[in-house]
């Protein structure tokens, strides 16, 4: 599958994501933040992690208002898969493609560790690395209820490492094609990486 990988100034997981997709027989292509792209030129896209625009203003705020995001929104509106990882998740929330917002971790510390995640749908448990300072998922009570009622919660932390409301680690859009999570599947898909739960994680 041809998959766009968005690059902003400060994105630093772009090459990992590129390799992750390549190793799973996809055909990734980098897309630059200042350019619009033809939405028919890719079948899906990833917004990778990092510190786009130095996390200035709010994490993901400036990136979410970049030209390339117009194309990402258009791609999403056609029902094509869009995945945001870590800073990419923050960007998709700021862009309004996903509900909620990611705030500074409850204990103000940058967390760099492994996290066990549980799917509320089928109780499946996986383990993926996390590396974030602003990973505390937050939504108002009304919005949170809607997120649960519409089956939008993808993953919850088994142990609440960052203070996220309802231990939420990842959510999806109402339509289901836009997904975002703080943990990094692209950092755990081969044995030598310490875990393989990122293999065939998406697409």
């Amino acid at each position: 599958m041809k998959v766009g990988v968005i690059q902003f100034p400060g994105t630093n997981c772009d090459r990992d994501v590129f390799q992750w997709l390549t190793d799973q027989d996809h055909n990734p292509e980098f897309l630059w933040h200042q350019d619009l792209f033809d939405i028919h030129s890719v079948e899906a896209c990833v917004v990778p992690g990092g510190f786009s625009f130095g996390d200035y203003l709010r994490s993901g705020a400036l990136a979410s208002r970049s030209p390339v995001m117009k194309s990402v929104k258009e791609l999403a509106s056609f029902g094509k898969p869009v995945l945001g990882i870590c800073n990419g998740f923050q960007i998709l929330c700021e862009a309004g493609l996903l509900p909620g917002v990611l705030l500074q971790n409850e204990k103000s510390l940058f967390i760099d560790s492994w996290a066990r995640l549980k799917s509320p749908k089928n109780q499946k448990v996986i383990q993926l690395p996390v590396a974030h300072g602003d990973g505390r998922f937050w939504a108002s009570n009304d919005e949170l209820k809607k997120i649960w009622d519409q089956d939008q919660v993808l993953w919850c932390y088994e142990e609440n490492i960052n203070g996220s409301v309802d231990q939420i680690a990842g959510v999806q859009s109402k339509s289901g094609n836009v997904k975002g999570l703080m943990p990094h599947p692209e950092r755990a898909y081969l044995d030598w990486m310490g875990g393989t739960d990122g293999w065939k994680f998406w697409l």
Partner: peptide, 9 residues
């Protein structure tokens, strides 16, 4: 409203 603040928080 175009982005200097996030009305959610």
């Amino acid at each position: 409203q175009e982005g200097l603040y996030n009305p959610l928080v």
